[in-house]
Amino acid sequence: MIYSLLVLSSPVSGQGAQTAAAFAEAVLAAGHTVRRVFFFDAGCYAGTDLAVFPQDETDRLGPWIDLAEQQQVELVLCISSAIRRGQLDATEASRHEKPCASVHPAFTLSGLGELVDATANSDRLVTFGG
């Protein structure tokens, strides 16, 4: 079965974002496909490469990087949600004349069309948070 995930929760508030990463891992382990994870609204903070977590808390970014690099899961941040939250990749940082990129390269920035496509072409779309 083809799944897509819509992540609305911030990684630093509540469990939604962490549950989404665990769900994606479980979906893949069960032999299904994850077409795309679309991060929207506060969910876009998941892509930050600049956050520092205390050593006694679980790493929020690591599970997503593993999904992207080891399982080739596509991670897309909604571009309009992301840039207003300071989540910029190198292209956007340059375009908006900001001092540095803040998004980890495992993530891409794109428009809501990616969510529409994920919805149209997945058997299940599962929302986390909101």
């Binding site: 609305l8 929207f40 609204d41 506060a42 909604c78 309009s80 949600s81 428009g111 809501l112 069309g113 969510l115 529409v116 496509d117 919805t119 149209a120 909101g130």
Partner: peptide, 19 residues
């Protein structure tokens, strides 16, 4: 919160792509 506006943006994007 910004969530409500996000929902309407998603709905309008869906409609723009003829879903």
């Amino acid at each position: 919160s910004s969530l409500a506006r996000a929902a309407l943006d998603a709905a309008m994007a869906m409609a723009a792509f003829e879903q």
